[in-house]
C-alpha cells in the first residue's frame, strides 16, 4: 500500500443541483410507478357514453404533471407513459401494439414541454399551465391524427354521406371534453394543489434539492438546439407511427392501388400536423428564451 498518498484525501462532489445518473433513474422509476398506479384507476372507471357524447377520464394527468414540475422534466416525462404501458397494457393484457408507441411519444412530449415551462413549482398558475399544455399537446396531436386517421383510413370516407363531418364533430367534442376533464379537472386543479404541497418535502426524501426559480433544474433545456431537434424527432416519429398504424398503408403489396386512390395527400396531413406543432414549439421556445434573457 502506498502510504505516500495523502491519507486525508478531500473530495467535494459536484453541485447538488446536477443530477447523478442514479437520481435520474429514481425520478424515472417514481414517475413510472405512480402513473402506472393512477392508470389502474382509469382502467376500471367506466366511461360515460351517450351516443356520440363521451365523458371519460382519459388518465389522471395530475400525477405525471406533478412529477415533471417537481423533478427533472425529461426523466419524469419518459417514465410516466411507460408506467401506463407496463401496469395496464402489459400486465392487464390491453396492449394495442404500434399505437402504444404513438401514445408514448405524444404524452412524453406533452409532459416534457409542460414541465419545462415551470420555473417555480410553488406557483399555481405555472403548474396549471403545464398541465393544460401537456394535455393539449398530447390530446391535440392525438386528436388531429385520429381525425385524419378516420378521414383517410376508412377507405371510403367521402363515399359515406356525412361521415367526415360527424368525425370532425365527434373528435372536436372529444378533444374539448378531454381538455376539460383530463386537462383541468384531473390535471391543472389537482396538480397545482399537490405540487405546492409536495414541493420541498418530496425532494429530500430522494436526496435531491428542491427545484425553484433560483435553481432551475438543468435539462429543462428548452432553449437549446438539442431540445428543438428532439421535438422535431418526436413529432416526426409520432406521426410516422400513427400513420403506420392508421392508414392501412402496409407495404402497398396487398393493395397496390392505394396511392392512386388517396394520392399522397394523407401523408401530407401528418407532415402538416407535425409542422404546425413544431413551429408552435419553436416560437414559444424562442419567446421563453427572450424572457429568460431579459430576466437575467
Amino acid at each position: 500500500m502506498t502510504e505516500t498518498a495523502p491519507s486525508r484525501a478531500r473530495r467535494v462532489l459536484p453541485d447538488p443541483q446536477s443530477l447523478t445518473s442514479s437520481q435520474k433513474l429514481m425520478v424515472f422509476v417514481l414517475s413510472m410507478t405512480l402513473f402506472g398506479l393512477a392508470n389502474i384507476f382509469t382502467e376500471v372507471i367506466p366511461e360515460f357514453k351517450l351516443g356520440p357524447v363521451e365523458l371519460s377520464v382519459a388518465y389522471l394527468a395530475f400525477v405525471p404533471v406533478v412529477m415533471v414540475c417537481l423533478f427533472h422534466p425529461l426523466y419524469a416525462a419518459l417514465g410516466a407513459p411507460l408506467g401506463e404501458i407496463v401496469f395496464v397494457d402489459l400486465l392487464m393484457g390491453d396492449f394495442s401494439g404500434i399505437g402504444e408507441v404513438e401514445g408514448y411519444l405524444q404524452l412524453s412530449l406533452g409532459l416534457y414541454v409542460g414541465g419545462s415551462l415551470v420555473r417555480d413549482p410553488r406557483r399555481r398558475w405555472q403548474v396549471a399551465t403545464a398541465a393544460i399544455v401537456a394535455v393539449l399537446i398530447d390530446k391535440g396531436v392525438g386528436g388531429i391524427i385520429d381525425m385524419s386517421k378516420v378521414v383517410v383510413g376508412v377507405e371510403d370516407a367521402e363515399y359515406v354521406e356525412g361521415l367526415p363531418e360527424s368525425v370532425l364533430v365527434i373528435e372536436g367534442f372529444a378533444f374539448a371534453s378531454d381538455l376539460l376533464i383530463t386537462g383541468v379537472l384531473f390535471g391543472a386543479i389537482p396538480a397545482a394543489y399537490l405540487a405546492r404541497r409536495l414541493h420541498g418535502k418530496i425532494e429530500p426524501l430522494m436526496g435531491m434539492a428542491p427545484r425553484d426559480a433560483e435553481h432551475p433544474v438543468p435539462g429543462r433545456a428548452r432553449q437549446t438546439a438539442a431540445f428543438v431537434s428532439l421535438a422535431v424527432f418526436l413529432m416526426l416519429a409520432s406521426g410516422v407511427f400513427a400513420f403506420l398504424e392508421a392508414a392501412d398503408v402496409k407495404f402497398g403489396v396487398w393493395e397496390p392501388g392505394f396511392i392512386d386512390r388517396y394520392g399522397l395527400g394523407f401523408l401530407w396531413v401528418s407532415v402538416a400536423v407535425c409542422a404546425v406543432v413544431l413551429i408552435g414549439v419553436v416560437v414559444s421556445a424562442k419567446a421563453l428564451r427572450r424572457r429568460a434573457r431579459s430576466e437575467d
Binding site: S7, R8, R10, L13, P14, T20, G207
Partner: peptide
C-alpha cells in the same frame, strides 16, 4: 457514500 450520495468526503 460518496459515489451515490454526493457530498464533502474526507479521509480514507
Amino acid at each position: 457514500v460518496p459515489h451515490f450520495w454526493s457530498g464533502e468526503f474526507e479521509g480514507r
